[in-house]
Amino acid sequence: MRWLRFIIGLLIALTLHSLLDSFFPNALAFFDPYIILVVYYSMGGNVLGAIVAGVMAGLVQDAFSGAIFGLHAFSLTVCAYIVAYINSRLMLRGTLAFGANLGGAVIVNELVIYILVNILLRQRIEMFEQGLIVKMIFTTLFGMLVYQLLAILFREEPIEATKRAAGW
């Protein structure tokens, strides 16, 4: 069931990606639907599942963007791992907790991308700090809204906590 939800979420994220690409080409610089999905899934606390989700979502994002193939997969996997690891210990729940996780994940994601682009392509990302702040704000707000809507829609906590503890 969780994987089905993830696949549906991934298709929705890809649809959003395509829509934004078609009608608002610059919007993806300020908003990332894939990271919302990955954080949402990783907050279940299943580290293994989170890694797989991060890789899958990242690869799909890479396949349909102009980035180096694997770049977003790498960064999203890092984010998924961190979020899943924290949630396996703290069991954070609620819209605000989701927003905090998401905001942090966006910062980590952007930092990882920044470092990888520097290493692999020896390029600097222009206006990185401004882009990071805007992306964090918009993605977090949108993610919280989606979380709240899902909570209303399913009338329960959208994140299914896993019973499985993360190993270290």
């Binding site: 890694i51 890789v55 890092v78």
Partner: peptide
């Protein structure tokens, strides 16, 4: 899972290097 995490990241890094 941490071991898996590291392996996955390594593979992804190789993939990125090839791609770049």
């Amino acid at each position: 899972p941490t071991l898996l995490f590291i392996v996955v990241l390594s593979l992804l890094f190789v993939l990125m290097s090839l791609s770049s």
